[in-house]
Design a protein around this nucleic acid. Sequence first.
DNA 1: AAATACAGCAACCGCACTCGT
DNA 2: GACGAGTGCGGTTGCTGTATT
Length: 397
Amino acid sequence: MGRSPCCEKVGLKKGPWTPEEDKKLMAYIEEFGHGSWRALPSKAGLQRCGKSCRLRWTNYLRPDIKRGKFSLQEEQTIIQLHALLGNRWSAIAAQLPKRTDNEIKNYWNTHLKKRLTRMGIDPTTHKPKTDALGGSGGCQSKDAANLSHMAQWESARLEAEARLVRESRLQVQSNLGPGSNTQPARLVLNKITTQQPSLPPCLDILKAWQSSWSKPQPPTKESNPKMMHSMYAMMLSTEDTLESPTSTLCFPGTTPTMLPVSNNNNIGVLFNENNDMFPLPSTNMDGGLMKENTVLHLQDDDIMAAVEAFRATTTMYDSNNNVVPPTLPNGVVLEGLNNDEGLVYDSNDNLGAEEENMAMMNGDGSLCNVNLEENNKHYWNNIFNLVNDPLSGPSVF
DNA sequence: AAATACAGCAACCGCACTCGT
DNA sequence: GACGAGTGCGGTTGCTGTATT
Protein backbone atom coordinates (compact mmCIF):
# COMPACT_ATOMS: atom_id res chain seq x y z
CA MET A 1 0.00 0.00 0.00
CA GLY A 2 1.26 3.42 -0.71
CA ARG A 3 2.31 5.60 2.12
CA SER A 4 2.88 9.26 2.34
CA PRO A 5 6.45 10.02 3.27
CA CYS A 6 6.82 10.97 6.87
CA CYS A 7 9.03 13.94 6.11
CA GLU A 8 7.03 15.43 3.27
CA LYS A 9 6.68 18.74 5.04
CA VAL A 10 9.02 21.40 3.77
CA GLY A 11 11.17 22.94 6.42
CA LEU A 12 11.80 19.88 8.51
CA LYS A 13 15.42 19.61 9.45
CA LYS A 14 17.56 16.68 8.37
CA GLY A 15 21.09 15.66 9.08
CA PRO A 16 23.06 15.52 12.30
CA TRP A 17 21.33 16.35 15.54
CA THR A 18 22.48 19.27 17.61
CA PRO A 19 22.91 19.05 21.40
CA GLU A 20 19.97 21.40 21.76
CA GLU A 21 17.74 19.11 19.76
CA ASP A 22 18.89 16.16 21.81
CA LYS A 23 18.04 17.99 25.00
CA LYS A 24 14.58 18.85 23.77
CA LEU A 25 13.89 15.32 22.70
CA MET A 26 15.19 13.77 25.90
CA ALA A 27 13.37 16.24 28.09
CA TYR A 28 10.11 15.62 26.31
CA ILE A 29 10.36 11.84 26.37
CA GLU A 30 11.45 11.76 29.98
CA GLU A 31 8.42 13.79 30.93
CA PHE A 32 5.73 12.47 28.63
CA GLY A 33 7.07 9.37 26.94
CA HIS A 34 7.26 9.30 23.20
CA GLY A 35 3.63 8.37 22.58
CA SER A 36 3.00 8.93 18.90
CA TRP A 37 6.26 9.63 17.17
CA ARG A 38 4.52 11.53 14.44
CA ALA A 39 2.99 13.95 16.90
CA LEU A 40 6.08 14.22 19.06
CA PRO A 41 8.20 16.74 17.13
CA SER A 42 5.66 19.55 17.24
CA LYS A 43 4.89 18.86 20.89
CA ALA A 44 8.57 18.81 21.74
CA GLY A 45 9.32 21.88 19.68
CA LEU A 46 11.50 20.09 17.16
CA GLN A 47 11.72 20.78 13.46
CA ARG A 48 12.18 17.10 12.74
CA CYS A 49 9.98 14.32 11.46
CA GLY A 50 8.78 11.72 13.92
CA LYS A 51 10.79 9.05 12.28
CA SER A 52 13.97 10.99 12.73
CA CYS A 53 13.12 11.50 16.39
CA ARG A 54 12.43 7.83 16.90
CA LEU A 55 15.71 6.88 15.28
CA ARG A 56 17.66 9.38 17.29
CA TRP A 57 16.07 8.13 20.49
CA THR A 58 16.37 4.41 19.86
CA ASN A 59 19.88 4.50 18.43
CA TYR A 60 21.53 7.17 20.47
CA LEU A 61 19.67 8.90 23.29
CA ARG A 62 18.01 5.99 25.01
CA PRO A 63 19.48 5.68 28.52
CA ASP A 64 19.92 1.92 28.30
CA ILE A 65 22.45 2.04 25.49
CA LYS A 66 26.04 1.02 25.88
CA ARG A 67 28.45 2.70 23.53
CA GLY A 68 32.04 1.98 22.80
CA LYS A 69 34.11 -0.97 21.81
CA PHE A 70 32.51 -4.36 21.44
CA SER A 71 33.80 -7.02 23.78
CA LEU A 72 35.11 -10.35 22.54
CA GLN A 73 32.02 -11.97 23.93
CA GLU A 74 29.87 -9.59 21.96
CA GLU A 75 31.88 -10.18 18.80
CA GLN A 76 31.50 -13.92 19.15
CA THR A 77 27.81 -13.60 19.72
CA ILE A 78 27.39 -11.43 16.67
CA ILE A 79 29.33 -13.79 14.43
CA GLN A 80 27.49 -16.83 15.62
CA LEU A 81 24.08 -15.28 15.45
CA HIS A 82 24.84 -13.88 12.04
CA ALA A 83 25.81 -17.33 10.85
CA LEU A 84 22.45 -18.54 12.02
CA LEU A 85 20.20 -15.60 11.28
CA GLY A 86 21.87 -13.59 8.56
CA ASN A 87 21.34 -9.86 8.46
CA ARG A 88 18.57 -9.85 11.03
CA TRP A 89 20.15 -7.15 13.07
CA SER A 90 17.26 -6.54 15.37
CA ALA A 91 17.17 -10.22 16.24
CA ILE A 92 20.89 -10.22 16.87
CA ALA A 93 20.61 -7.05 18.91
CA ALA A 94 18.00 -8.70 21.08
CA GLN A 95 20.73 -10.99 22.39
CA LEU A 96 23.17 -8.19 23.06
CA PRO A 97 21.97 -6.00 25.88
CA LYS A 98 22.42 -2.28 25.48
CA ARG A 99 23.46 -2.56 21.85
CA THR A 100 21.29 -1.30 19.05
CA ASP A 101 20.69 -3.07 15.79
CA ASN A 102 22.16 -0.13 13.95
CA GLU A 103 25.33 -0.26 15.98
CA ILE A 104 25.69 -3.98 15.47
CA LYS A 105 25.02 -3.61 11.78
CA ASN A 106 27.70 -0.96 11.49
CA TYR A 107 30.15 -3.00 13.48
CA TRP A 108 29.55 -6.00 11.30
CA ASN A 109 29.97 -4.06 8.09
CA THR A 110 33.08 -2.21 9.17
CA HIS A 111 34.90 -4.80 11.26
CA LEU A 112 33.67 -8.36 11.40
CA LYS A 113 32.71 -8.69 7.76
CA LYS A 114 36.14 -7.59 6.68
CA ARG A 115 37.83 -9.96 9.05
CA LEU A 116 35.95 -12.93 7.68
CA THR A 117 36.59 -11.82 4.12
CA ARG A 118 40.29 -11.56 4.76
CA MET A 119 40.22 -15.02 6.22
CA GLY A 120 38.80 -16.28 2.97
CA ILE A 121 35.36 -16.82 4.44
CA ASP A 122 32.26 -15.63 2.76
CA PRO A 123 30.65 -13.39 5.38
CA THR A 124 27.24 -14.08 3.92
CA THR A 125 27.30 -17.85 3.99
CA HIS A 126 30.00 -18.24 6.65
CA LYS A 127 31.63 -20.85 4.49
CA PRO A 128 35.12 -20.85 3.05
CA LYS A 129 35.15 -19.19 -0.31
CA THR A 130 36.96 -22.19 -1.76
CA ASP A 131 33.86 -24.30 -1.22
CA ALA A 132 33.06 -24.34 -4.88
CA LEU A 133 36.37 -26.01 -5.62
CA GLY A 134 36.12 -28.91 -3.32
CA GLY A 135 34.46 -30.55 -0.41
CA SER A 136 31.41 -32.67 -0.24
CA GLY A 137 28.41 -31.11 -1.88
CA GLY A 138 26.11 -33.55 -0.24
CA CYS A 139 27.36 -32.81 3.20
CA GLN A 140 27.19 -29.12 2.60
CA SER A 141 23.64 -29.29 1.40
CA LYS A 142 22.77 -31.24 4.51
CA ASP A 143 24.47 -28.58 6.56
CA ALA A 144 22.50 -25.96 4.79
CA ALA A 145 19.30 -27.87 5.37
CA ASN A 146 20.04 -28.23 9.06
CA LEU A 147 20.94 -24.60 9.33
CA SER A 148 17.88 -23.54 7.42
CA HIS A 149 15.73 -25.72 9.60
CA MET A 150 17.12 -24.23 12.77
CA ALA A 151 16.90 -20.79 11.33
CA GLN A 152 13.20 -21.31 10.72
CA TRP A 153 12.72 -22.13 14.35
CA GLU A 154 14.89 -19.33 15.49
CA SER A 155 13.14 -16.95 13.18
CA ALA A 156 9.79 -17.86 14.65
CA ARG A 157 11.18 -17.52 18.14
CA LEU A 158 12.65 -14.13 17.55
CA GLU A 159 9.50 -12.84 16.00
CA ALA A 160 7.65 -14.12 19.01
CA GLU A 161 10.08 -12.51 21.38
CA ALA A 162 9.80 -9.23 19.57
CA ARG A 163 6.06 -9.40 19.83
CA LEU A 164 6.25 -10.24 23.50
CA VAL A 165 8.49 -7.31 24.10
CA ARG A 166 6.10 -5.01 22.32
CA GLU A 167 3.15 -6.36 24.23
CA SER A 168 4.87 -6.27 27.56
CA ARG A 169 6.06 -2.76 26.91
CA LEU A 170 2.53 -1.69 26.23
CA GLN A 171 1.35 -3.45 29.34
CA VAL A 172 4.01 -1.95 31.58
CA GLN A 173 3.49 1.43 30.03
CA SER A 174 -0.22 1.32 30.61
CA ASN A 175 0.37 0.25 34.20
CA LEU A 176 2.92 2.88 34.99
CA GLY A 177 1.64 5.71 32.87
CA PRO A 178 3.42 8.06 30.51
CA GLY A 179 7.12 8.53 30.78
CA SER A 180 7.74 5.02 31.90
CA ASN A 181 8.51 3.43 28.58
CA THR A 182 12.24 3.53 28.93
CA GLN A 183 12.31 0.13 30.57
CA PRO A 184 14.70 -2.09 28.68
CA ALA A 185 12.88 -4.73 26.77
CA ARG A 186 15.13 -7.44 28.17
CA LEU A 187 14.16 -6.62 31.70
CA VAL A 188 10.51 -6.52 30.90
CA LEU A 189 10.73 -9.86 29.23
CA ASN A 190 12.63 -11.39 32.08
CA LYS A 191 9.94 -10.31 34.45
CA ILE A 192 7.41 -12.13 32.41
CA THR A 193 9.29 -15.26 31.60
CA THR A 194 10.50 -15.87 35.08
CA GLN A 195 6.93 -16.23 36.18
CA GLN A 196 6.07 -19.76 35.34
CA PRO A 197 2.44 -20.52 35.92
CA SER A 198 1.16 -23.97 35.23
CA LEU A 199 2.20 -24.62 31.70
CA PRO A 200 -0.24 -25.91 29.16
CA PRO A 201 0.41 -29.35 27.76
CA CYS A 202 1.65 -28.17 24.40
CA LEU A 203 4.72 -26.75 26.05
CA ASP A 204 6.28 -30.17 26.00
CA ILE A 205 7.30 -29.43 22.47
CA LEU A 206 9.25 -26.48 23.61
CA LYS A 207 10.72 -28.41 26.47
CA ALA A 208 11.97 -30.82 23.92
CA TRP A 209 13.30 -28.05 21.86
CA GLN A 210 15.02 -26.56 24.84
CA SER A 211 16.55 -29.88 25.65
CA SER A 212 17.73 -30.38 22.12
CA TRP A 213 19.55 -27.10 22.27
CA SER A 214 21.21 -27.72 25.57
CA LYS A 215 22.28 -31.31 25.77
CA PRO A 216 25.34 -31.56 27.95
CA GLN A 217 28.43 -33.03 26.49
CA PRO A 218 29.85 -36.03 28.29
CA PRO A 219 33.35 -35.43 29.54
CA THR A 220 35.66 -36.17 26.67
CA LYS A 221 38.64 -35.01 28.66
CA GLU A 222 39.00 -35.35 32.33
CA SER A 223 40.96 -32.18 32.48
CA ASN A 224 38.45 -30.18 30.51
CA PRO A 225 35.01 -29.90 31.99
CA LYS A 226 33.80 -27.56 29.32
CA MET A 227 30.48 -28.40 27.84
CA MET A 228 29.46 -28.61 24.25
CA HIS A 229 26.60 -26.68 22.91
CA SER A 230 24.49 -29.06 20.92
CA MET A 231 23.25 -26.41 18.56
CA TYR A 232 26.71 -25.85 17.21
CA ALA A 233 27.36 -29.52 17.12
CA MET A 234 24.36 -29.82 14.89
CA MET A 235 25.48 -26.95 12.77
CA LEU A 236 28.84 -28.57 12.41
CA SER A 237 27.68 -32.06 11.91
CA THR A 238 26.97 -33.72 8.62
CA GLU A 239 26.20 -37.11 10.04
CA ASP A 240 22.89 -38.65 9.06
CA THR A 241 22.19 -39.62 12.61
CA LEU A 242 22.47 -36.07 13.76
CA GLU A 243 19.19 -34.34 13.76
CA SER A 244 18.17 -30.77 13.80
CA PRO A 245 16.66 -29.30 16.96
CA THR A 246 13.26 -29.78 15.50
CA SER A 247 13.55 -33.42 14.68
CA THR A 248 13.00 -36.49 16.79
CA LEU A 249 14.36 -36.07 20.26
CA CYS A 250 13.76 -36.70 23.89
CA PHE A 251 14.33 -34.75 27.03
CA PRO A 252 14.88 -35.43 30.67
CA GLY A 253 11.98 -35.43 33.01
CA THR A 254 9.43 -36.76 30.62
CA THR A 255 9.54 -39.68 28.28
CA PRO A 256 7.97 -38.75 25.01
CA THR A 257 6.85 -41.46 22.68
CA MET A 258 8.29 -41.31 19.23
CA LEU A 259 6.22 -42.16 16.22
CA PRO A 260 7.96 -44.08 13.49
CA VAL A 261 8.61 -41.84 10.57
CA SER A 262 7.42 -42.75 7.15
CA ASN A 263 10.19 -41.20 5.13
CA ASN A 264 13.69 -39.92 5.47
CA ASN A 265 12.78 -36.47 6.56
CA ASN A 266 13.32 -35.31 10.08
CA ILE A 267 9.78 -35.62 11.24
CA GLY A 268 9.30 -35.65 14.96
CA VAL A 269 6.23 -36.12 17.05
CA LEU A 270 6.02 -35.70 20.80
CA PHE A 271 3.39 -36.65 23.30
CA ASN A 272 2.63 -35.01 26.58
CA GLU A 273 1.39 -36.69 29.73
CA ASN A 274 -2.09 -36.90 28.26
CA ASN A 275 -0.80 -38.55 25.12
CA ASP A 276 -1.72 -35.55 23.06
CA MET A 277 0.31 -35.54 19.93
CA PHE A 278 2.42 -32.60 18.93
CA PRO A 279 4.18 -32.74 15.61
CA LEU A 280 7.50 -31.02 15.64
CA PRO A 281 8.10 -28.16 13.29
CA SER A 282 9.29 -30.16 10.36
CA THR A 283 5.70 -31.24 10.06
CA ASN A 284 2.60 -29.16 9.96
CA MET A 285 -0.11 -29.68 12.53
CA ASP A 286 -1.75 -32.28 10.38
CA GLY A 287 1.38 -34.31 10.56
CA GLY A 288 2.17 -33.68 6.94
CA LEU A 289 5.45 -32.38 5.75
CA MET A 290 5.97 -28.71 5.68
CA LYS A 291 7.18 -27.24 2.48
CA GLU A 292 10.54 -25.59 2.46
CA ASN A 293 10.45 -22.11 3.91
CA THR A 294 7.05 -22.62 5.45
CA VAL A 295 6.39 -19.91 7.95
CA LEU A 296 5.69 -21.25 11.37
CA HIS A 297 2.77 -19.91 13.27
CA LEU A 298 3.25 -20.65 16.92
CA GLN A 299 0.70 -20.30 19.65
CA ASP A 300 1.38 -17.75 22.33
CA ASP A 301 2.01 -20.45 24.89
CA ASP A 302 4.57 -21.99 22.62
CA ILE A 303 6.11 -18.61 22.11
CA MET A 304 6.46 -17.99 25.81
CA ALA A 305 8.16 -21.29 26.34
CA ALA A 306 10.27 -20.86 23.25
CA VAL A 307 11.63 -17.64 24.62
CA GLU A 308 12.37 -19.31 27.89
CA ALA A 309 13.95 -22.22 26.12
CA PHE A 310 16.24 -20.07 24.10
CA ARG A 311 17.28 -18.13 27.15
CA ALA A 312 18.41 -21.36 28.71
CA THR A 313 20.84 -21.94 25.90
CA THR A 314 22.06 -18.51 24.98
CA THR A 315 23.92 -15.74 26.66
CA MET A 316 22.10 -14.48 29.69
CA TYR A 317 22.80 -11.52 31.86
CA ASP A 318 22.18 -10.79 35.48
CA SER A 319 20.98 -7.49 36.86
CA ASN A 320 24.51 -6.13 36.64
CA ASN A 321 24.74 -7.15 33.03
CA ASN A 322 27.24 -9.85 33.77
CA VAL A 323 27.07 -13.00 31.76
CA VAL A 324 25.59 -15.86 33.69
CA PRO A 325 25.93 -19.47 32.58
CA PRO A 326 22.76 -21.09 31.33
CA THR A 327 21.08 -23.80 33.30
CA LEU A 328 19.56 -26.97 31.98
CA PRO A 329 16.09 -28.02 33.04
CA ASN A 330 17.65 -30.47 35.46
CA GLY A 331 19.62 -27.72 37.12
CA VAL A 332 22.97 -28.45 35.56
CA VAL A 333 24.90 -25.25 35.02
CA LEU A 334 26.69 -25.13 31.70
CA GLU A 335 29.95 -23.73 32.90
CA GLY A 336 32.11 -22.17 30.27
CA LEU A 337 29.44 -22.31 27.65
CA ASN A 338 29.14 -18.67 27.04
CA ASN A 339 32.78 -18.14 26.50
CA ASP A 340 33.29 -21.12 24.31
CA GLU A 341 29.97 -21.42 22.62
CA GLY A 342 29.93 -25.12 22.95
CA LEU A 343 33.10 -25.96 21.15
CA VAL A 344 35.59 -28.22 22.79
CA TYR A 345 38.92 -26.62 23.43
CA ASP A 346 42.30 -27.93 24.35
CA SER A 347 44.43 -26.48 27.09
CA ASN A 348 45.48 -23.68 24.76
CA ASP A 349 41.90 -22.74 24.08
CA ASN A 350 42.15 -24.11 20.59
CA LEU A 351 39.64 -26.54 19.31
CA GLY A 352 40.95 -29.95 20.08
CA ALA A 353 42.32 -31.63 16.97
CA GLU A 354 41.38 -35.01 18.33
CA GLU A 355 37.81 -33.98 18.85
CA GLU A 356 36.63 -35.22 15.51
CA ASN A 357 34.01 -37.29 17.16
CA MET A 358 31.98 -35.17 19.47
CA ALA A 359 29.61 -37.04 21.66
CA MET A 360 26.05 -36.07 22.04
CA MET A 361 23.26 -37.42 24.11
CA ASN A 362 20.61 -39.51 22.54
CA GLY A 363 17.10 -39.10 23.76
CA ASP A 364 17.48 -41.83 26.32
CA GLY A 365 20.57 -40.24 27.76
CA SER A 366 22.96 -42.59 26.06
CA LEU A 367 25.66 -41.21 23.90
CA CYS A 368 26.06 -41.10 20.19
CA ASN A 369 29.05 -39.92 18.28
CA VAL A 370 28.89 -37.08 15.87
CA ASN A 371 31.46 -36.78 13.14
CA LEU A 372 32.41 -33.25 12.37
CA GLU A 373 33.34 -32.12 8.94
CA GLU A 374 36.87 -30.82 8.93
CA ASN A 375 36.16 -27.72 6.97
CA ASN A 376 33.41 -26.56 9.19
CA LYS A 377 35.35 -27.33 12.32
CA HIS A 378 38.28 -25.37 11.08
CA TYR A 379 36.02 -22.56 10.07
CA TRP A 380 34.63 -22.11 13.56
CA ASN A 381 38.02 -22.74 15.02
CA ASN A 382 39.40 -19.96 12.89
CA ILE A 383 36.63 -17.59 13.81
CA PHE A 384 37.00 -18.04 17.51
CA ASN A 385 40.73 -17.98 17.39
CA LEU A 386 40.54 -14.81 15.44
CA VAL A 387 38.14 -12.97 17.63
CA ASN A 388 39.90 -14.23 20.73
CA ASP A 389 43.25 -13.09 19.51
CA PRO A 390 43.79 -9.49 20.51
CA LEU A 391 46.55 -9.19 17.93
CA SER A 392 44.32 -10.12 15.08
CA GLY A 393 42.40 -6.88 15.01
CA PRO A 394 43.74 -3.82 13.30
CA SER A 395 47.18 -5.29 12.88
CA VAL A 396 45.80 -7.96 10.64
CA PHE A 397 43.58 -5.70 8.64
C1' DA B 1 51.49 21.25 5.45
C1' DA B 2 48.24 20.03 2.02
C1' DA B 3 45.79 16.71 -0.61
C1' DT B 4 43.88 12.40 -0.93
C1' DA B 5 42.16 7.96 0.59
C1' DC B 6 40.01 5.39 3.81
C1' DA B 7 37.32 3.93 7.93
C1' DG B 8 33.71 4.50 11.10
C1' DC B 9 29.28 5.66 12.17
C1' DA B 10 25.01 8.54 12.52
C1' DA B 11 21.23 9.28 9.95
C1' DC B 12 18.18 8.68 6.07
C1' DC B 13 15.24 6.02 2.89
C1' DG B 14 11.83 3.06 1.66
C1' DC B 15 9.68 -1.36 2.14
C1' DA B 16 7.08 -4.43 5.12
C1' DC B 17 4.45 -5.47 8.89
C1' DT B 18 0.91 -4.75 12.64
C1' DC B 19 -3.06 -2.87 14.32
C1' DG B 20 -7.18 -0.17 14.61
C1' DT B 21 -11.19 1.43 12.09
C1' DG C 1 -11.61 -7.58 3.78
C1' DA C 2 -9.82 -2.95 2.66
C1' DC C 3 -7.56 0.90 4.06
C1' DG C 4 -4.47 3.98 6.39
C1' DA C 5 -1.54 5.27 10.38
C1' DG C 6 2.23 4.02 13.00
C1' DT C 7 6.25 1.60 13.55
C1' DG C 8 10.11 -1.81 12.76
C1' DC C 9 13.70 -3.11 10.05
C1' DG C 10 17.55 -3.55 6.79
C1' DG C 11 20.10 -1.28 3.16
C1' DT C 12 22.37 2.74 1.90
C1' DT C 13 24.24 7.37 2.05
C1' DG C 14 27.09 10.89 3.34
C1' DC C 15 29.56 13.34 6.86
C1' DT C 16 33.59 13.45 9.87
C1' DG C 17 37.87 12.10 11.70
C1' DT C 18 42.17 9.72 10.84
C1' DA C 19 45.86 7.75 8.15
C1' DT C 20 48.70 7.93 4.25
C1' DT C 21 51.14 10.01 0.46
